[in-house]
């Protein structure tokens, strides 16, 4: 019985196994990235960047159809362009980075939707927006695994300056010129994960895989190392449960995964020991000192 519910779908169907591996790879990279986005108060930046990669992917699609390399490359170019432009405007002018990012991503999104609608039906647009987690081929799996590998290795190298940039950017500026570089590399990782994510979940839902586990993790621990671990685990668990639900109830897989991650967030919000609602509603006696 339990076997039928939990194991059989993955044991019997290749596409379910592939989806599971793909989502696990995505969670490995996107979890830690989401944690840093949250700690840097950039939770909505992921959303903006996800919109920004659309025209690039769309141009790739327009020229070569549903081709993985073309759409990946296009997405990366568009994402990096918006990140670099927004960063450059923020550093060169009075406009803050959030405002310049908003300006560029909105233009980028409008451009993307226009390009997609130039050619192809609404089904294609749905594919770009919501992904095809149940149709991951070898190349896409390799891309997702590659993105996770690059992300984890780069984060390990950048860890010290990245944390410093979050806590005390003024101090980092006073001792080193690495700040701007670190910020850009971090944004590059965000773009990389979103581009990887949109093949599996689509541009809109890839952000969910990044931010929902991170926001959930914050209710369980306040330590950065543990935050990244908890976020990654929540991501993988949401992926597994979401795929099973979509299999048993015939729901679309991508949204099911994100809805489960959303459920995990609500659960953490209610029960989490670090600032969760239950902790607030059930006061504990205070200590002597």
């Amino acid at each position: 019985m339990l076997y039928d519910v939990l194991i059989a779908p993955f044991a019997d169907f290749d596409f379910m196994r592939r989806a599971l591996v793909g989502i696990a790879a995505l969670a490995l990279g996107a979890g830690p990235i989401g944690v840093f986005l949250m700690l840097r108060r950039m939770s909505l930046t992921g959303d903006a960047m996800a919109h920004a990669i659309l025209p690039g992917a769309a141009v790739g699609y327009l020229l070569y159809g549903l081709s993985l390399p073309a759409m990946t490359l296009g997405g990366l170019v568009a994402g990096f362009a918006v990140a670099l432009l927004a960063g450059a405007v923020a550093r060169a002018t009075e406009l803050r980075e959030d405002a310049s990012l908003a300006a560029f991503y909105l233009v980028s999104l409008a451009l993307g939707v226009t390009i997609v609608s130039l050619k192809g039906s609404n089904v294609d647009l749905l594919h770009v927006l919501f992904g095809t987690v149940l149709a991951l081929d070898d190349a896409t799996l390799l891309l997702l695994a590659g993105v996770a590998t690059i992300t984890l290795m780069t984060l390990a190298l950048l860890y010290r300056p990245l944390v410093l940039e979050c806590v005390d950017p003024g101090f980092l500026r006073s001792v080193s010129r690495a700040g701007a570089m670190v910020h850009l590399l971090f944004l590059a990782l965000v773009v990389l994960n979103l581009v990887g994510g949109f093949h599996a979940l689509g541009t809109l839902l890839a952000v969910g895989m990044m931010m929902l586990p991170a926001a959930s993790a914050r209710f369980w621990t306040a330590d950065i190392t543990r935050l990244t671990l908890v976020a990654t685990l929540i991501g993988i668990a949401s992926g597994t449960v979401g795929l099973l639900i979509s299999y048993h109830f015939g729901l679309p897989a991508g949204p099911a995964v994100i809805l489960v991650a959303g459920g995990a967030y609500l659960l953490s919000l209610a029960l989490g020991p670090v600032g969760g609602l239950m902790r607030l509603l059930l006061p504990v006696r205070h200590l002597e000192a």
């Binding site: 700690l39 979050c166 806590v167 005390d168 003024g170 101090f171 306040a222």
Partner: peptide
């Protein structure tokens, strides 16, 4: 100092 006091460090 523009230190983020909420950062868990």
């Amino acid at each position: 100092a523009d230190i983020d006091r909420a950062f868990p460090i």
